[in-house]
């Protein structure tokens, strides 16, 4: 565990907490893409199946359970409890366009052709693009609440910090995993436009509004 990974995990945890608090406190999930949240639930479910087979550490087990549980809790809040506030008219991204290519790619490019390994690889590929429905929703409505921007910033930072972690591990431990690195790069690049707007607008107290 190095500092980049620790801060990456904490940033990921912070993103989840921000999102759940926003929905719970405002009793609304307006501006949040349910499609992205469904994709995250699929990502964590397919990645953390190894909870059943391998024990790594208490930290690892705890975090995995938290990520899986909170992803289902978010989907529940959006599609059941606060269903009336869900922005379904703007959340129109077709997630099969992300899921199907991720499945095919995982079947073709993987480390080992076993069920758990292919599912792990699928989750890595799917995670890299899972935020697209959310970014699409923001671009469709042309704006995002500050709290939603903070959520997106924390969520985007997490994989960027993981990239630094992988650079560190390459030099310090001679360890690298090309599948995770390439997917992580794609994932981080997708946030770049948002990061720019966040730093130039939201941090200066303005609302995130896309140029007309």
């Amino acid at each position: 565990m190095n500092i980049f990974r620790l801060f990456g995990d904490l940033s990921h945890l912070l993103a989840i907490i921000i999102l759940l608090l926003k929905i719970w406190k405002t009793r609304s999930c307006a501006g949040i893409s349910g499609k992205s949240q469904i994709l995250f639930a699929i990502v964590y479910t397919s990645r953390y199946l190894d909870l059943m087979t391998t024990y790594i550490s208490a930290y690892n087990t705890f975090m995995k359970i938290v990520f899986v549980a909170t992803s289902y809790a978010t989907v529940f809040l959006m599609y059941m409890k606060f269903k009336a506030t869900y922005d379904r008219n703007h959340d129109t991204f077709r997630i099969e366009f992300l899921i199907v290519p991720a499945v095919i790619l995982a079947l073709v490019i993987n480390q080992e052709f076993t069920v758990l390994e292919v599912l792990w690889t699928f989750s890595i590929y799917l995670e890299s693009v899972a935020i697209l429905p959310q970014l699409f929703l923001v671009s469709k409505t042309g704006e995002a609440e500050s709290i939603t921007s903070h959520y997106l910033f924390a969520l985007g930072s997490y994989r960027a910090l993981y990239l630094l972690n992988w650079v560190y591990r390459y030099y310090a431990e001679d360890h690298y995993d090309l599948i995770a690195i390439v997917a992580g790069l794609v994932q981080t690049v997708l946030y770049c436009d948002f990061f720019y707007l966040y730093i130039t607008k939201v941090l200066k107290g303005k609302k995130l509004q896309l140029p007309a």
């Binding site: 391998t54 690892n60 990520f67 080992e112 993981y162 972690n165 431990e173 995993d177 995770a180």
Partner: peptide, 10 residues
């Protein structure tokens, strides 16, 4: 490189 090392990540 040991792939299983990546599995201890989240």
């Amino acid at each position: 490189t040991n792939h299983s090392l990546t599995k201890d990540e989240l």
